[in-house]
Design a protein around this nucleic acid. Structure first.
Lengths: 205, 205, 205, 205
DNA sequence: TATGAATGAGGCTTCATTCAT
DNA sequence: TATGAATGAAGCCTCATTCAT
């Protein structure tokens, strides 16, 4: 099996890079590390990528996208039903974040935060992360707003602030999780007790 | 003044390293970068540090300690007064976190999260960060517990979970802040609305 | 037309290599450069050539030969007519040098002098260039000698020296031309004023 | 003698590079070649030069300058004496060209023409060579003009053309010399027979 | 005849570290 | 305490060449 299709090998490189960068950070992973780990020669890397930088961008797009851009469609229909349960929807969206990160959440988290720190010296990464965060924020904002309209979410705090709290607690648990992988990330749902006015759907009733 | 005190130069190196590592990460900063930035020759570095690794540990101890180990003493006295206002104390402690990070919070945040990602490949850093987080956690836990004892904090959620939420939201706003430096980190105090039972001291009354 | 005749593609490769080597020198041109420039894949190169070296030798033979080997035949007949005008013949021969270099003289010149410098590390090229120069020299020598016999060229300087001057000035103007492409290469004919004894055919009379 | 002065080593690098580039051309000489040839480690190169490119520029300035910029001063005084022998001066200047190239003329010539071909892809080198050629041209032009004023040089051909012939023949013999190192470069002086009106100083009288 | 994946040698450059001064 | 020359390992990338399709 010496000669395989390009796409196959390219995908293997991306996956290997993702795994390795979670441990050491992207800069500290060498092309040689990556290629050795998939049983290929160093030089073959450049058959598939123009540069190491380009690889980072592919890893980012394929493995580190939180995907709130695409998620919207299916959720929206639900959200605008007359009698919808906003809290349930929000819980589903929040759960998605961790599911989408794939099998190994710790790997994902380290890779993601490596990317975040990396963004400080790479304009392109910075913008991509910002766009990603904005999509997520906009998506949550829409849900919160709808919740407020339906009288399910408190209105004495403005929509964006509630949205921020919602995102913040999820991001915060990412970090806590990196400190202590034993922590229960489901604790984040408690933030909903603060946001939601006691309602008949609430699981805390 | 070609020859200065060792301590002076050492301090300059630490500060420069801290600034530079916020941008590029510790690995990507070279000894030469650091020494050039303080107007000294590369070779002089080893007069002050045994290795680059040792420098990282100093930067960590001197510039990146969240300092919940020391903070305790003065706070504790207050906390165990009969009629103490736990919410006020907690707010003060929370505020401290950002104050202690010094002039430029963004620099601090990037440096700190660079360190966190770095920890994945450095046992010593990992342990230090864990200890730090544990101290912070233990400190908060003590406050929360006291709050619960005094009937100021809800008791239907267990102490450690409330503590985690408390830490989580602060960490989460660090990250949000890195995405969007315009965000108002004081929003984190809203978490207290959820924790605290409405009480006569509350500013939301 | 994915599959073309071999000869066609081979010729395209040679032409592309010639163009590209004028700019960057043969070593600095990659097989990939060449094949990309003719819209073919890198691997196809080896269908037409055994190695890059072989390509150089083909380029040399087909595009960089000054061609004094072949030129002889037609000229010789003229030269040995009784009342021949040696100066006119010499002018024609000299003109030929630039005509034979094809459309773009500057490209030709750079390619040729790249080859010359390359010859220092390639025995085969060195010998080929020497043979070429020798043919040219021998050819000129024959003309000069005939001119002397007919009393048209001065005899106080020996035949080979006059020949050298004749070649030298042409080579020198190649170089001047590379410095300043605006120069008028026809100036080289002035050397004839020095060689030829004033004669009835001279255009300077 | 493990540690030497910077200037010493830098000079050795320049000299080694000059020798090596005469054989293989600048691109084909590796940093490793150069450093090994002076008994130093590859990495040490960068103590003295910022890049390989910078080395080329130094080699060029220090070893390949034809130096007609500086030469002027001493010659000029002679040139403007009332009864000066322009032909003698011109011969001296022409001789200088070969003397200045140092011990090994063949090495010098190959290095120089490597630089010339290299100039096609390096703007900076191109400009430097042009400036150099212009200085030489301007210098010769001045001499020729003076010769014409004094009635020693023919005036039926314009000054610049004569200058070009003068430079051209020298450059041409450089090339001839590279083909056949046995050639007598003094033959170039014959061009003066063409330029100069028969005069009492002429060695051909 | 054509392709493109794969290879391994080799080139430029960076960098932590050492050492004589 | 400070310097700057020197080192060698390691990293990114290029490239001539091979080979299965």
């Amino acid at each position: 099996m010496k000669y395989s299709t390009g796409i196959e090998t390219k995908r293997k490189i991306i996956d290997a890079a993702f795994q390795l960068m979670a441990d050491k950070g992207f800069d500290a992973v060498s092309i040689d590390d990556i290629m050795t780990s998939i049983g290929r020669a160093k030089g073959s890397f450049y058959v598939h990528f123009k540069s190491k930088e380009e690889l980072l961008y592919e890893v980012m797009r394929i493995r580190l996208d939180r995907g709130h851009g695409q998620m919207a469609e299916e959720i929206l229909k639900e959200l605008f039903k007359d009698n919808c349960n906003v809290r349930a929807i929000l819980e589903r969206v929040t759960a998605e974040v961790h599911v989408s990160s794939g099998e190994d959440y710790l790997t994902w988290a380290f890779a993601y935060y490596h990317l975040l720190t990396h963004s400080r010296k790479d304009e392109f990464v910075r913008e991509w992360l910002e766009t990603n965060a904005d999509q997520w924020s906009a998506f949550l904002n829409m849900i919160v707003k709808r919740g407020q309209e339906l009288g399910q979410i408190r209105t004495d705090v403005d929509t964006q602030t509630i949205t921020n709290m919602c995102m913040g607690i999820v991001l915060g648990y990412d970090i806590l999780f990196m400190f202590k992988p034993r922590i229960d990330v489901n604790e984040v749902y408690h933030i909903h007790d603060w946001m939601f006015i006691s309602d008949p759907f609430s699981k805390n009733e």
